[in-house]
């Protein structure tokens, strides 16, 4: 049963991705990308990664769709039709895809409990984390305790990205608006 749901959701996602390539209305593409994220969140639930599904549903389907819509509000709603068709990207993509598919032929099958990935680090987390760390949710104990450094780094990346966005958007706004508005609270009027 899980396999059927998995196959159907995967097929939906493939269709959504291909339609997103073909559509030229960016507004429709952004809405489809929200649907795409929601489909992937449901797929994560089927694949037993509930924490990831939770995050994807909140972030991918919620925040990033809203951010893209606000970008479209500041830019354009449509993509310009291409001037000429270039076959090179399609060839590159097909060759890369074929190489990757060839690479999967040696991979352990989907859901195989004997796959190497389940025998190296994971058993330690599964067996020892309730004793060593305590919380029943292993993902939390790995995230915050075993891999605390990792998460500290990720939090710093989020912080840096946030500062970057604020500098890019808020900075330009002040530079344009302030001299024009005539009200210069920062003490700039003495010079201008």
């Amino acid at each position: 049963m899980e396999h059927i749901i998995d196959i159907v959701l995967m097929a939906f996602m493939a269709v959504a991705a291909i339609v997103m390539i073909r559509l030229r209305s960016l507004f429709a593409v952004v809405m489809l990308s929200g649907i795409f994220s929601l489909l992937s969140a449901s797929l994560f639930v089927v694949l037993d990664a509930v924490d990831v599904a939770f995050t994807e549903a909140a972030v991918g389907a919620g925040i990033s769709t809203v951010l893209m819509l606000s970008t479209l509000a500041l830019t354009f709603r449509d993509e310009r039709p291409p001037r000429r068709r270039d076959p090179v990207p399609l060839v590159v993509v097909l060759v890369t895809g074929a190489a990757l598919v060839y690479g999967t032929l040696d991979m352990p099958h989907f859901g195989d409990p004997d796959a190497p990935i389940h025998h190296h680090v994971a058993p330690r987390y599964i067996v020892d984390s309730p004793v060593e760390v305590g919380p029943p949710n292993m993902v939390t104990s790995v995230l915050a305790s075993y891999r605390g450094y990792d998460t500290l780094g990720e939090t710093t990346v989020i912080f840096t990205a946030g500062i970057g966005v604020m500098v890019l958007l808020a900075g330009s706004w002040r530079r344009r608006r302030r001299p024009a508005s005539g009200r210069t609270p920062g003490g700039t009027e003495t010079r201008s």
């Binding site: 995050t55 990935i117 990720e154």
Partner: peptide, 12 residues
């Protein structure tokens, strides 16, 4: 649990 942890942070 390990891929979940890696991807959870990667999404945000």
């Amino acid at each position: 649990p390990l891929p979940s942890v890696l991807i959870l942070t990667a999404i945000v």
